[in-house]
Computed example of a mutant assay.
Amino acid sequence: MSPHRNGRSDAAMTSSLPPHIPTSEVLRGLLAEAPAEGVTFGWLLDRLQKRSFGVVLLLLALIGLTPGTSPVVGLLLTIPALQMILARETPAFPRTIMSRRFSTQRLVRMVDRTVPVLRRMETVIRPRWKMPFETTTRVVGLVVLVLAGVFFVPIPLSNVVPAVTIMLIALAYLEEDGVLLAVSLAMAAAVLIATTITVWQSVEAVRSMFF
């Protein structure tokens, strides 16, 4: 087979791939499909499909910025993180969470607040340096699992930096932005190193007080 034919074949395969749809448009599409009587968390995850992990991580990271939520958020983050490591297609939560119903109007309000922010971010965050989807999913899951442990560190405001880092990782994952993902992973490494040093110094300080 000639190299020219190979090149045309690769180009044809690339052009046949579906175009990337921004997350803001995906969320807008949810409103058109939402039943009038209300939606469940399971329904949302089913409609979001491969975006569901990114959206869950983004929501949990936002909640993680709230004071006093660190242990709960850290625990909840381990669920999607472990499933991403296992390369599951969508996250699965206990039935009580999946069947939790809320009004469609609440979904509309949430989307109306979120979409304008996402659209501004999407002018900068866009598909670049694409990696195989399964590999990216496993890497993101592993990093989020390790960062989830930082939420259990009993140091004031220790939840802020890991929460922001997970938000950036989630946005990079949602928009298939390898550049932002690389920056976010470097930031995650810095967070873990700083946390390890801080915890070690705290332990040494306690030891010097009592021994």
Rank of each mutant, 00 (worst) to 15 (best):
V179A: 14
V124P: 02
S208Y: 08
A182E: 09
V56M: 07
L77Q: 03
S202K: 09
R119V: 01
W129C: 06
S202W: 15
A11R: 13
L107V: 01
P80I: 05
Q83W: 08
I155C: 08
F102C: 04
A189W: 06
R128W: 05
V72G: 06
W43G: 04
R138Y: 00
P35M: 09
T104F: 06
G42A: 05
G64D: 05
L118A: 03
S9P: 10
S9G: 11
A170H: 04
M209S: 12
P18N: 12
V143Y: 02
A148S: 02
S2Q: 06
L58S: 07
M209K: 12
V26M: 10
T137S: 04
S24L: 06
R95N: 14
I166T: 14
T40R: 03
V183N: 10
V56R: 00
V160S: 11
L147M: 05
F93T: 02
M187P: 03
V150A: 11
I169V: 12
P94F: 02
T23V: 11
F211D: 03
G54N: 06
D10A: 15
L82V: 15
L45C: 01
T114Y: 00
V164Y: 12
M110Q: 08
L62S: 14
H20W: 09
S16T: 11
M84D: 06
T195Q: 00
N6F: 15
I166V: 15
S202H: 13
V111P: 02
T96R: 14
L48I: 01
A194N: 07
S24D: 01
R126Q: 04
G29P: 02
V161M: 10
R126G: 01
T23Q: 11
L45M: 04
V203C: 07
T165F: 05
I197K: 02
I63W: 04
I193F: 10
G29Y: 01
V139I: 02
R106V: 13
I193D: 08
F102I: 10
T78G: 06
